[in-house]
């Protein structure tokens, strides 16, 4: 369970996050949506202790994110950032292998190798495993980064816009894989999405942010309505129902 309690964040004088309190129970997929600059990435960075907390508290299974040693937390949660600039010249396999670092501190065991192979397979990277990252396409690199986070094999997986750069096939494929590991292995997944229909199809719960606050929180069918989407994004979005699910059509 991730408990976020009264968290605020400000740079200079501008408030980025204002007094956010929310609880994300163990298991399931939670989608975080909202317009650009709403504070989604900032919130995720705070949960993943990439930024120091300015006020409030965040705990994960009762462990305070601020005071628990990094090593311990690295076995509890993995994070994928929205933009990643890797300076190193690494092969895909090497990069994915780094996901095992919290467990093996660099000495890969047979077990670790198995997990790496499995991740390469899962994200269709086995053909690319010997290639250097800078020779990959944007989408291929994104898949390698997701595979690395997956390899960390943690209870919590925080993903900031993992669908960036992915084509339709791999976007659906990734969402399905995430759904499956949430269902079969009881992982908790928090994922930032811009495509509301992916959120509607794959998430158990949607958290919507705007201007540094949580403005809506609920099941997909509760949130994907024209009214709700208007409060979140500030414009009219028609919603229809296909196969019993709400589908937003923000195209006209």
């Amino acid at each position: 369970m991730i408990e976020i309690n009264g968290v605020s964040l400000a740079y200079d004088v501008t408030n980025i996050l204002s007094d956010i309190s929310v609880t994300i129970p163990k298991g399931g997929v939670t989608a975080l949506i909202g317009p650009n600059g709403a504070g989604k990435s900032s919130l995720l960075a705070l949960v993943a202790r990439l930024q120091p907390l300015q006020s409030g508290a965040i705990t994960m299974d009762g462990l305070s994110v601020a005071s628990t040693p990094g090593k311990v937390l690295a076995k509890k949660m993995a994070i994928l950032r929205q933009d990643n600039h890797l300076g190193s010249r690494l092969t895909v396999r090497e990069l994915v292998g780094f996901g095992r670092f919290p467990h093996s501190r660099g000495h890969l065991t047979a077990e670790d190798r198995k997990v790496v192979d499995e991740a390469l397979m899962l994200f269709d990277l086995d053909d690319l495993s010997g290639r250097f990252l800078e020779t990959l396409s944007g989408g291929q690199r994104q898949r390698a980064l997701v595979a690395m986070a997956y390899c960390q094999d943690t209870d919590y997986l925080l993903l900031d816009e993992p669908l960036n750069n992915l084509d339709m096939y791999f976007a659906r494929d990734l969402m399905r894989s995430l759904r499956r590991i949430a269902d079969e292995r009881g992982k908790t997944i928090v994922i930032v999405l811009h495509d509301i229909n992916y959120a509607g199809t794959f998430a158990d719960r949607i958290l919507a942010m705007r201007n540094g606050r949580i403005v809506a929180d609920g099941r997909p069918d509760e949130l994907i309505t024209t009214d709700m989407l208007n409060t979140i994004y500030g414009f009219e979005i028609p919603v229809t129902t296909i196969d019993g699910r709400p589908v937003a059509l923000p195209f006209r």
Binding site: R49, N84, F98, G99
Partner: peptide, 10 residues
Amino acid sequence: LGRDAAIGLG
């Protein structure tokens, strides 16, 4: 790997 990735890995 960089700051964020390194912290993420503990």
